[in-house]
Structures are given as C-alpha cells and as structure tokens.
Simulated assay, not measured.
Amino acid sequence: MRKYFITGLLILVPLAITAWVLNIIISTMDQSLLIVPERWQPRTLIGFDIPGLGTILTVLIVFITGLLTNNLVGNFVVRQWEKLLHRIPVVSSLYGSVKQVSDTLFSDSGNAFRKAVLVPYPHADSRTIAFLTGAPATEVQKHLDGEYISVYVPTTPNPTSGFFLMMPKKDVIELDMSVDAALKYIVSMGVVVPE
C-alpha cells in the first residue's frame, strides 16, 4: 500500500505544483486587465471573468512593444525615455542595473548561461555544475595570475540564488550538457539525471 501511495505522490505532486505555479502566473498576469476601462472588462460585458485573458493581453502588450521599438522611431523614443530615467537619482541606479542584467541574459550576443561547466567548489576536492558567464573585467583581470573565466554557481534547489566566481580556466571543464538539462539536474538535487 505504501508503494502505491508513493507512486501516486510521484505522479500527482509535480502535476499539482505545475498547476499551482501556472495559476499564480496567470492570475498575476490577469491583473493587467485593470488597465482596460471597466466597461470593456469581461465581467462587465459578459458577467464573469475569463481566466487567462490577462495573460493574452500581457503577451500582446510585450509583443507590440517589441514590434514598435524595433525600428528607427521606436529606438529614438526608447533612448529618450532611458535618458529621462537616468536623470532620476534612485530610479537611475535601479533601472540601470536591471537593464544591464536583462540585456545580458536576453540578448542574442550575450554570454550569460550559454554553457554548463564543471568547477571545483566549495573546495578543490569536490565538483559542482556552474554556468559560464564570461571573462573577468579588465580591472580585475590585471590582478589575476593566468587566464580566468567568470562562472555562476547556482544553489540547490533554488538556482536563482548562487555565487559569482572567477576561476582559472584550466580548472573548468566544459560539459556536453544543455543549460536546461543542467538546471533540471541542479533543481532536482541530482535526482533527475540528464540523458
């Protein structure tokens, strides 16, 4: 009986957690309907809410924003908007930092999380999976002896927190593993082994 119960848990728990996370994401994105005038909201028009309509609206807003800013006029407007934001003291540092990180993570030319690597951590006799993030800054590099690379070592089971390390390139082993597979391996604490 215990075996069947555990088997049931192994099937239902991931499904329930996935449904729960999707529900949180969709209900959060449904809050975007608040920007729509009250008379055009589904509750007013048809008498009830439509789950997921806010998600569709959010995706459309993001897509249209990308479409409009991906031309000469849109680029000009974005540059002027960013100049304005950089003049506001607290907003400037916060927006600048977030913009730099998002540009690095989402741009096609960025190096963030492009490769899974094996590194010695937390000491020389143990290994963990990390992600290649680039090379140390010039100012840092001139104080290092030899060739170094920058890596991000995520924590388990929450990979959004972790450690940024600069390691000798000779100590880093590139893995023949996708970033997605490496993340699954880390989040599952080694239970889900990549193929």
Results as ranks from 00 to 15, higher is better:
Thr155Gly: 13
Arg114Phe: 06
Pro154Thr: 02
Gly146Leu: 04
Ile64Gln: 08
Phe106Val: 11
Ile88Glu: 03
Gln31Ala: 14
Pro42Lys: 02
Asn23Tyr: 13
Ile6Thr: 13
Glu195Gln: 13
Ile11Lys: 07
Asp108Phe: 12
Ala116Leu: 06
Met189Val: 12
Asp108Glu: 15
Leu175Gln: 03
Asp145Pro: 01
Met167Tyr: 00
Leu45Phe: 04
Ile56Val: 15
Tyr152Ala: 05
Pro14His: 10
Ile24Trp: 01
Ile186His: 02
Ala135Pro: 02
Val90Leu: 06
Val193Met: 10
Gly66Asn: 11
Leu94Thr: 01
Trp20His: 13
Val192Asn: 11
Val151Ala: 00
Thr28Tyr: 06
Ile17Thr: 11
Gly52Tyr: 01
Asp49Trp: 05
Ser27Cys: 01
Ser161Ala: 12
Pro51Gly: 05
Leu165Val: 04
Ile24Tyr: 07
Leu68Cys: 10
Ile35Trp: 10
Ile25Glu: 03
Glu38Asp: 10
Arg39Thr: 11
Leu68Ser: 07
Leu67Ser: 15
Asp49Tyr: 04
Ala137Ile: 08
Phe113Met: 10
Ala182Arg: 03
Asp180Asn: 14
Glu174Leu: 11
Thr44Ser: 11
Ala135Thr: 14
Val172Ser: 02
Ser126Pro: 02
Ile173Ser: 08
Ile88Met: 09
Leu144Thr: 00
Asn75Val: 09
Ile173Asn: 04
Gln141Ile: 03
Leu53Tyr: 03
Thr58Ile: 07
Asn75Ser: 13
Ser92Arg: 00
Asp125Ser: 15
Leu132Lys: 05
Tyr4Thr: 14
Ile50Gln: 04
Thr18Ile: 06
Ile186Ala: 03
Val78Asp: 03
Ala182Tyr: 03
Thr58Asp: 07
Leu94Gly: 01
Phe113Val: 02
Ile61Phe: 14
Gln100Phe: 13
Leu10Lys: 14
Val21Glu: 07
Pro157His: 03
Ala116Lys: 02
Ile129His: 02
